[in-house]
Design a protein around this nucleic acid. Structure first.
Length: 271
DNA sequence: ATCATTTGACCGCC
DNA sequence: GGCGGTCAAATGAT
């Protein structure tokens, strides 16, 4: 038993180290991408995109493996969930998967805005505690790439209108990387050696997708996983940039759709 | 014709 | 047994 535990700990540690190394590589590529930016910079940086995507995928696999190792004990007793629905008349392939162990988080919005990812509605339901219908969505690439991301959207307030979107699981498919070129995490040496610069593509911002108010909300959503305070600066004249005056001990949780790569990067530094 | 959404039924969990 | 989550056939939109 003792040996099993230490072996598992070792495996977890190795997975974390591997993920962290790849995250570092990814960051280096992004920094090179920044320093290469000029008139023809876009084309030049595009050459590196397959590598970036590959690195991000490796990080995701590493995270998934780590979570599986961590959860293997708690899920052990439930391992019969998919073993053919013994009591069911349905064939095993048609058995409904129940409880998801993926992380979930919610975002409230006043409007039903696009999050830029590709979803397919697969059901809707009237829930007991809410007078409004809840809509269920899964990733459009679920079948092609076995992407586990799902979300449900529910109106929670009439006036002013308010919608709660609950996400479950990160996208592991191509749509999460293709559709979010507007957000970058870079070093900001002009401010402080350890600081980071979170910037948004102007076109994206000008489409009213991110308003000044939301940017402030975003800044308040950034919190330190250590006790140290995190200073966030939103320049008044340039709302498409945020300076994070802190080292990498941050927990960024604004939304999965706008922070996939950033989320992964920050997640690695929690360990 | 193809693809997305709607809808009712099924299923597991509490 | 009630409830919420998921499936797939039916329906609608393009």
């Amino acid at each position: 038993m003792e040996n099993n535990n230490s072996g598992r700990k070792e495996a977890i540690e190795q997975e974390l180290i591997r993920g962290r190394d790849v995250a570092k590589q990814l960051l280096e590529v992004l920094i090179i991408h920044k320093s290469n930016r000029n008139e023809e910079g876009i084309e030049r940086s595009m050459v590196k995109m397959p590598f970036v995507e590959d690195a991000v995928r490796k990080i995701l696999i590493s995270f998934t493996n780590t979570l599986l190792l961590f959860n293997s004990d708690t899920q052990h007793n439930r391992s019969d969930i998919h073993q053919g629905c013994k009591k069911s008349k349905r064939p095993p392939t048609l058995c409904h998967k129940r409880k998801s162990f993926a992380p979930t988080w919610s975002i409230d919005n006043a409007i039903l805005s696009e999050d830029g990812l590709e979803w397919r509605k697969y059901g809707q339901k009237k829930t007991k505690d809410c007078r409004y219908i809840r809509s269920y969505y899964k990733c459009s690439y679920k079948n092609e790439e076995d992407c586990k991301a799902i979300k449900h959207v529910q109106r929670i307030q009439e006036d002013p209108p308010l919608y709660r979107t609950t996400y479950s699981g990160h996208h592991t498919c191509k749509c999460s990387f293709v559709n979010y070129p507007h957000m970058k995490l870079e070093s900001a040496p002009s401010l402080q050696e350890s600081s980071k610069l979170l910037s948004f593509n102007n076109n994206y911002y000008n489409n009213n997708t991110l308003q000044s108010k939301e940017m402030k909300h975003l800044s308040s959503s950034i919190s330190s996983t250590k006790q140290e305070p995190v200073e966030v600066i939103i320049p008044n004249d340039d709302h498409n940039q945020i300076h994070l005056l802190s080292d990498c001990e941050l927990d960024f949780n604004y939304s999965s759709t706008e922070s996939v790569a950033f989320d992964i990067f920050m997640g690695m530094f929690k360990f």
